[in-house]
Amino acid sequence: MDIQKLKEEIIAYSKTIGIDKIGFTTAEPFTELKNRLIRQQELGYQSGFEEPDIEKRTNPALLLKEPQSIISIALAYPAKMKIRVESKKGERRGIFSRASWGLDYHRIIKDRLQKLEEYILTKVPDAHLKSMVDTGELSDRAVAVRAGIGWSGKNCSVITPEFGSYVYIGEMITSLPFEPDNSVEDQCGSCTKCLDACPTGALVQGGQINAQRCISFLTQTKGLIPNEFRDKIGNRVYGCDSCQTACPYNKGKDFHFHGEMEPDPEVAKPLLKPLLSLSNREFKVKFGHVSGAWRGKKPIQRNAMIALAHFKDKTAVPDLIGVLEKDASSVAKGTAAWALGKIGGDQALEALKRAKQSESDSEVLQEIEKGLLLISIERADI
């Protein structure tokens, strides 16, 4: 078998199935990454969504018998909507981050990797292959960097020379001894724009993130958002792009290569008030195909209430009162109480007073008190 010829054939084939960039690296353990992950764990900076076994995250030999190489792929995604919808008074909108525009990227990347696997097996039927994206054991970013897809930016994203950091990535461990590609030189230099742009200071330093402070992570949690982060979330209902939009290497980058990635503006930038009353079925029909739906409707609804508070949307007060009085979730009721306090007004005040008399959940009662305090502070300032 001519392994170099096979590599060239794979590269050529990848272009025909919608892979925008492909790179090859060894299947050696990721020793430096392992040390960083141990340190992140010690500092409590992990999100909890990662594969918990650091050995599996850094040693391909634990995932495939006698691995020889890893193939990394990247697909560029859009940075701008072709059709825009505007947020206006009485019809305020939230925003999903770009990585949740269009069809769930896990499905897109898995489709490309599956096609690549099938092609390789037509050439080498006895090859051993294992593909993964995001939810797999390996660190997609570490693989992509070592395979020459791009460099690891200070914002902890893989930055490609061609597409900036607006890329989805995935990888395939193989039993084939492909020649590794050269890595890409780090081009961040002394730039700190991403660190400066992070709303919560989650980027501790270049290349190190405290996931517990990251808005993207916070919007995916299921509990009450800690007080210090609520005003920072703005109108984000899922994810955060601040460190990407601030990056000079993303300036002017906007690629529309893949039809399934094109966002429906009513999904990517949804009206906020209707989100509060969606049933599980309605949520699944409208949002089930996007990656931002993976945690279900409750986190999205909680974030929508925070966004309505951000806009101080008085037209949302009846909707928020409905959540406070009728929802079974303490997180939803508590967030609604806080949002009512942020928005203020007589109707919100009366609703909070009623709820204080009837509510028995201590967590919700704390949020009701916060709401009442916010209104009293606002009235004292008038």
Rank of each mutant, 00 (worst) to 15 (best):
I3Q: 00
Q4E: 12
I10D: 02
I10F: 10
I17D: 07
I19Y: 08
K21E: 08
A27I: 00
E32N: 05
L37Y: 04
R39V: 07
Y45E: 01
N59W: 01
E86Y: 05
F96H: 12
R98I: 03
E118G: 05
Y119V: 05
P125Q: 04
D134E: 14
T135V: 08
G136P: 11
G136Y: 09
I159H: 04
E171C: 11
T174E: 02
P180T: 14
N182E: 15
C191H: 12
K193M: 10
C194G: 07
V204Y: 12
Q205C: 08
Q208V: 15
R213G: 00
K232E: 04
D241L: 09
Q244D: 01
C247D: 02
Y249E: 13
F257A: 03
G259N: 15
P263S: 08
L278K: 10
S279Y: 07
N280K: 09
F283P: 13
V285R: 15
A293D: 09
A293T: 09
P299A: 13
I300N: 03
N303F: 14
K312T: 15
V323T: 14
S330R: 15
V331Q: 11
A337D: 15
W338D: 13
Q347L: 14
A348H: 03
E350H: 12
A351D: 06
Q357D: 08
L365R: 14
I368V: 06
E369I: 01
E369K: 11
